[in-house]
Design a protein around this nucleic acid. Sequence first.
DNA 1: TTGCAGGGGTCAA
DNA 2: TTGACCCCTGCA
Length: 312
Amino acid sequence: MDHQLQTMQRELPDKGVDMDYKGYEIIEKDKSIVVKNLRDFHPVHVFDCGQCFRWIRQEDGSYTGVAKGRVVNAQYDEGVLVLNNSTLQDFIDIWYDYFDLGRDYSEIKTLLCKDDIMREAISYGHGIRLLRQDIWETLVSFIISANNMIPRIKKTVGVIASIYGDKVSYDGSDYHTFPPVEKLSDTSVEQLDVCRGGFRCKYIINSSMLAKTGEIDLKSLAGMKTGDARKELMRFPGVGPKVADCVLLYSGTKYDVFPTDVWVKRVMEELYFKREASFREIQEFAAAYFGELAGFAQQYLFFYARENRIGV
DNA sequence: TTGCAGGGGTCAA
DNA sequence: TTGACCCCTGCA
């Protein structure tokens, strides 16, 4: 652990540890981390806004998910986030970054509130945060998303993890981590067929080959210009412009993208263009109007459009 | 009960 | 620019 962090810790009377970490008050106790003073976070907005497929809503309203090789349960109420089954070290090493806790979403929302449409969309999805997910998992997940439905995407990703991932347990149940590149590149299309991914299975296997051999380096994308990173991603089979933008955005690699799927197209046509608009028109408008914050704008608009069935 | 449309797009012709 | 595409749910 970082020396500076240790010096800031205080032992609590009940054996817990209380510390300040980058503006948040953190309490570690009984394999749980309590994060206080967290604004701009709503579990439904974060986990059901379409960016992730491996967080499952529990009866008590909390979400249990597998990410970064860990299984955790997240519950939030009144500015307090509780991460169950996490250590302080994992919070610092993994979850702070994963939940994008270093970003001021209030400022982003203020900047994006430039018209009544965005005001309404942001008000509706005020607790959205963009997760910084593992890029390989995000790539495979969004290859699966093509011409598919969310419950089935979740199911397919879940089956892949259950067969090729490692088992991790929490609260009496078994979960599975998402398999690394090597695990899938050693698999055949026929073997992967059990995940019921259909025509997407061959894309996954072939993509895993390209990633394994280093023909395409996922780690290099962050250092590229957004347009180049997008082109590079589109070299993977099954990855077109929409999937590429989703991978860049939901892995926290690039934020000046505007993934345009049927829902985003509908909401843009219905509320901004007031007519049919091409994919290209929408992309150009978003780049000019939202600029560097296009990805955040897209997420507020997508959630608002899908939940309210805008344009259907 | 059966049949068919359609879904977080992409690919190939 | 246009169909086909795995699979499977929902609906007539």
